[in-house]
Amino acid sequence: MEEVYEFLKKCGTYYLATVEGDQPRVRPFGTVDIFEGKLYIQTGKSKAVSKQIQANPKVEICAYADGKWLRLTGKLVRDDRVEAKKHLLDNYPELQSMYSPEDDNTEVLYFDEATAVFYSFTEQPRIIKF
């Protein structure tokens, strides 16, 4: 999982895919954190992406850097604890003007049943499950 975290941090921007009804939805994301041994991302509960995840928690992330790419699939689980929100926001101070660990909008989610596959044109795919 640490390798997945490091790759996503290195990319800066990754793309999160959700489903809305029968329509895929993809958007850029940039937050990633490890808290209590789990890989987290962050969004706002008021956003469509949050509603899509709550309706169907199966998501996929795609990220690319230096000729390699990552596809990360799994279920996202909401963690409403202030400690989890604070940990993530402490690592992204630029978000603290929009989000707070104590507000009703900040949402942090961790991956459950995750499968990460690293790809490149020169190596065999490598799988990490966590």
Rank of each mutant, 00 (worst) to 15 (best):
G30Y: 11
N56S: 14
G30K: 10
L109S: 00
E83I: 07
E107T: 05
L89C: 03
D79C: 03
K68S: 08
K75W: 00
T18M: 14
I41Y: 04
V117S: 00
P57C: 13
A17Y: 10
F29S: 15
D103T: 09
V49G: 09
S100Q: 07
K68E: 08
E60G: 07
V59A: 12
V82D: 03
L16W: 10
Y14T: 15
A65V: 11
Y99A: 02
S97D: 10
C62F: 08
G37A: 14
E94F: 02
G21F: 14
F118R: 00
E123K: 01
V117D: 00
A65Q: 12
D66N: 13
V19A: 15
G21A: 15
D66Q: 13
Y92N: 05
K51I: 11
H87R: 10
N56L: 14
Y99V: 01
D112A: 03
G21R: 15
S100W: 06
C62Y: 07
A65S: 13
A116S: 06
P93Q: 07
R78Y: 00
S97Q: 09
D103A: 10
S46L: 07
L72Y: 04
A114T: 05
E102N: 09
T13Y: 15
D22A: 12
T122D: 12
Y119V: 06
V82K: 04
H87A: 12
K68Y: 05
T43V: 06
G67C: 09
V49K: 10
Y110E: 06
G37Y: 13
L76W: 02
R81W: 06
V32R: 11
D22N: 12
E123A: 01
V19P: 11
L72S: 05
D90T: 08
Q42S: 03
D33M: 13
T31P: 08
D80W: 00
R27D: 14
L16R: 10
T73S: 09
R27P: 12
V82A: 03
S120E: 01
D79R: 02
Y92C: 06
R81K: 10
L109Q: 01
L95W: 00
E60M: 07
K58W: 08
C62E: 09
A114G: 05
E20V: 14
M98P: 02
S100A: 08
E36A: 13
A116Y: 01
V49T: 13
M98E: 06
G30T: 13
K86N: 11
Q54E: 12
T31H: 08
K38V: 12
D79V: 03
